[in-house]
């Protein structure tokens, strides 16, 4: 009487339903402190670098007594252009702070909701688990993109006003750097989501991710040894390891490393696949 294959039939999740889930997740994620912090910090990175360089430029331009470092005039050591401001803002952004805040937002949205049981309240609804992960990922990816824009816009804008676009560092190159930096954010979000399936609190995810990145340091050190010993392929593997892959954006200065991007793609794919696989089987009491 009943069709044996019936349970395998489509779940009936419509695009409209998925979009409304994404909207609800956006409300939850942007409502949390971590997302707001990410946006504030992002703007600060751009603004602070622009102002600092303007200050430095004024000092150098005025020929002040201290405007030399080791006997060289600052204006000859430091590039003053929109591209340079954008580049330093990007470095500052990726120096620990924003990746950490994005990791916090990811952890709050998954591990945090597992821990405080709010995730259960959406899983009792007729939604496949992958779609809940997808909704969260889309919102986090957009948050990362927004923070990139919030750093790039004031940095490049003020840079153009202060110094113009002339200089060795092109604005287009820096924009590619921001794009690559967004890709590494996606890698970090994927790592944060995977670690979240093992944890029940935001703190545990941060600690867990730190441990992973420390393990990565260790493995890269071992690979360094293998490179010295002349083991073939060790160097390519080392360049694709997470620590290097997440820094793929550093190539905006002119030497993009393809191995870093390959590594990033692998990290992203593996983490997302494992996250989906684990989450599908996870008890959410």
């Amino acid at each position: 009487m009943t069709d044996r294959r019936a349970p395998e039939a489509r779940s009936g999740l419509t695009t409209r339903h998925l979009l409304s889930m994404i909207g609800a997740e956006a409300r939850a994620i942007y409502g949390r402190g971590s997302a707001r912090l990410a946006m504030v910090v992002a703007v600060l990175c751009g603004v602070v670098v622009a102002l600092a360089m303007q200050w430095l430029f004024t000092r150098a331009g005025m020929g002040a007594v201290d405007a030399q470092i080791n006997g060289n005039p600052i204006s000859q050591m430091v590039e003053f252009s929109a591209g340079a401001v954008g580049g330093w803002a990007l470095r500052l952004r990726n120096l620990f702070v924003l990746p950490l805040v994005l990791l916090l937002a990811t952890a709050a949205s998954l591990a945090g909701e597992l821990g405080d049981h709010t995730l259960r309240e959406v899983l009792v609804r007729p939604v496949p688990r992958w779609s809940v992960l997808a909704a969260k990922f889309v919102v986090l990816a957009v948050l990362a993109l927004v923070t990139q824009a919030l750093t790039a816009a004031p940095a490049l804008g003020a840079g153009m006003v202060f110094f113009g676009t002339d200089g060795p560092t092109s604005v287009q190159g820096v924009l590619l750097g921001y794009a690559a930096s967004w890709l590494s954010d996606l890698g970090l979000i994927a790592i944060g989501m995977l670690v979240s399936t093992f944890a029940r609190s935001v703190g545990a995810v941060v600690v867990g991710t730190m441990l992973l990145l420390m393990a990565d340091l260790g493995i890269r050190a071992v690979l360094q040894g293998m490179i010295w010993l002349g083991v073939s392929g060790a160097e390519a593997v080392q360049r694709a390891m997470p620590g290097n892959a997440l820094a793929c954006w550093e190539g905006f200065t002119g030497d993009w490393d393809p191995a870093a991007f390959v590594g990033l793609a692998v990290i992203f794919g593996v983490c997302m696949a494992l996250t989906g696989w684990r989450f599908q089987r996870l008890d959410v009491p």
């Binding site: 009943t2 019936a6 039939a9 489509r10 779940s11 009936g12 999740l13 007729p126």
Partner: peptide
């Protein structure tokens, strides 16, 4: 009467 593990929850 629905045994689909996801869809069946629409009524719940």
């Amino acid at each position: 009467g629905d045994r689909h593990p996801v869809r069946q929850r629409a009524a719940v």
